[in-house]
Design a binder for these strands. Structure first.
Length: 492
RNA sequence: GCGUGGGUAGCUCAGCUGGUAGAGCAGUUGGCUUUUAACCAAUUGGUCCUGGGUUCGAAUCCCAGUCCACGUACCA
């Protein structure tokens, strides 16, 4: 839209912006391209800093983030997300013209390329003594406060770039997220898993019980859904003989937004033929510990509040606890399973747990689990053998048909990962999907059931909510702090 | 959805029971050739979220809307 504006049309903007526009004109008048060109660098800022040697000729590029004007001597920092380096500009050293460009036409926020020799100042700061200064991009708006950063949550999320510029602790979390995701791919590839991509646009939104986003394909004249899970397509691939696979990508759920929920979220699903849920639990345990040790400072993960006080310490030391669902409930009330359904409802009121009339008996128990077990479990715990009604895609337990062979990995008061021994009996699968109880049910995908009839090997499967995993590993309090562009309401 | 709290300068914030809208940083001007939240001096900058109401007078009180946060429900 700015392209439609006449360059000299008066813009009703603050004086602050006008001053920057004036400097833009000064650059143009001096024959300098304010938006730069190719610039050859010898180092990344971060590498230069970590392997600093004096008196070497270097070229680096970055954004001016602060300046200290001492008259004929100018100190300033250039930085990007990975690092910061101090630059020194001396009027005699660079000549009057270049010096004027810096003092009269450049601001904090502008991108520059600098070339010069490295040295260390009196107080020990690694610095580049600038010989040539190249303008790479003029910033037409001022940056946020360098000391306080961006505190306003709305700016942080709507203008993430400002958060990244001003708040190193935010940048750190996103860099950790990148490393974690890259390492998950390496970890699985090293174990012979193949990364696949399955449809996000689906005819039937299956594989989970959640509201999907609806859309429409014009040429086909058909309504479609954004996937709520990739599961049913990954299982089709196992029917096709791809027996060690994973998908690490977005799913979409048209549900409420909260500290723990974003409508699009990143999910990892892993399937391994001829494995079962305990085998998958072992692998997940190994993987998460590997990630914590490599990118999060070890197996003791500390969470801090805004003031920096430690509010929680999560111990990821192996082996992780494994407990049957029923034993977890019995720890709350040892007689729970000898009560009648009515007694359980009464007991819920005593325990301060809200339940609705419409809830089935197993859902009442599940409420107890969620409020009194899950939300109070911070160190890792695999909760196994849950009631079969909760998980229609998992194999029934051989000894107790009311249970399924699954784990739910709880860490940090949240479910981080479910894992199943996957149900591969097509008739049992059909009947389980058709006889689901409760309010939220999974859609029946006939094409998936058809695939199962051709034979899917027994398999272990895992889902991991990557956003929540990153929250747990980095101590982020909100999913919005680990998703670069979280969903917000449109601003009119 | 519902409930509670919040929205004041580019950023971070103060502004009492209604009485001329404030500070720090950033910016501007001047000074200073090893500073680093540089420093010293001066100085500019406001749709107090939007709309309505009460009042002689509203950033402040009331109503509605809007966005954000937190809690809650659905959900992972």
């Amino acid at each position: 839209m700015s392209e439609n504006q006449e360059p000299h049309e008066p813009i009703a903007e603050s004086e602050l912006l006008q001053i920057r526009r004036d400097k833009l004109e000064l650059l143009k008048e001096a024959g300098i391209d304010p938006f730069g060109q190719y610039f050859s660098t010898t180092h990344e800022i971060s590498d230069l800093k970590s392997n600093f040697t004096e008196d070497s000729l270097v070229s680096v590029a970055g954004r001016i983030t602060s300046r200290r004007d001492m008259g004929k001597s100018q100190f300033f920092d250039i930085a990007n997300a990975h690092g910061r380096i101090q630059c020194y500009l001396n009027k005699k050293g660079v000549g009057d013209e270049a010096f004027d460009v810096f003092t009269k036409m450049l601001d904090i926020g502008d991108w520059v390329g600098v070339s010069g020799k490295t040295f260390t100042t009196k107080v020990g700061e690694p610095t580049i003594n600038i010989e040539t200064l190249t303008v790479l991009s003029k910033a037409l708006r001022p940056l946020p406060d360098k000391f306080h950063g961006v505190v306003d949550r709305e700016i942080k999320y709507r203008q993430r770039y400002l958060d990244l510029i001003a708040n190193p602790e935010s940048t750190k979390i996103f860099l950790q997220r990148c490393q974690i995701i890259a390492e998950i791919r390496r970890f699985l590839e090293a174990r012979g898993f193949l990364e696949v991509e399955t449809p996000m646009l689906q005819d039937v939104a299956g594989g989970a019980a959640a509201q999907p986003f609806e859309t429409h394909h014009n040429a086909l004249g058909m309504d479609m859904y954004l996937r709520i899970a990739p599961e049913l397509f990954l299982k089709r691939l196992m029917v096709g003989g791809l027996t060690k696979i994973f998908e690490l990508n977005r799913s979409f759920r048209n549900e409420g937004i909260s500290r723990r929920h974003n409508p699009e979220f990143t999910m990892l699903e892993i399937y391994q033929a001829c494995a079962d849920f305990p085998a998958m639990a072992d692998m997940v345990e190994e993987m998460i510990c590997h990630l914590a040790e490599n990118f999060c400072g070890g197996l003791q993960v500390e969470h801090h509040d805004e003031e920096g006080n430690t509010i929680r310490s999560i111990n990821l030391q192996r082996p992780w606890k494994r407990r049957a669902y029923r034993d977890c409930i019995k720890e709350i009330d040892s007689d729970w399973f000898s009560y009648s359904p009515e007694q359980r409802r009464t007991r819920c009121q005593e325990l301060g747990i809200e339940i609705s009339e419409a809830m089935e008996d197993y859902e009442v128990t599940q409420q107890v689990f969620e409020k009194l077990v899950e939300e109070k479990t911070f160190d890792p715990c695999f909760v196994t053998h849950v009631p079969k009604e909760l998980v229609p895609l998992a194999k029934q337990n051989a000894e107790d048909g009311s249970l399924v062979d699954v784990y739910e990995l709880i860490i940090n008061g949240q479910e981080i990962s479910p894992g199943y021994s996957e149900l591969n009996d097509p008739d049992a699968q059909r009947s389980r999907l058709k006889h689901q109880a409760g309010e939220e049910t999974q859609k029946v995908d006939e094409d998936f059931l058809l695939a199962l009839e051709y034979g899917m090997p027994p398999a272990g499967g895992v889902g991991i909510g990557i956003d929540r995993l990153v929250m747990m590993l980095t101590g982020a309090a909100s999913i919005r702090d680990v998703v670069l562009f979280p969903q917000l309401k449109r601003r009119e």
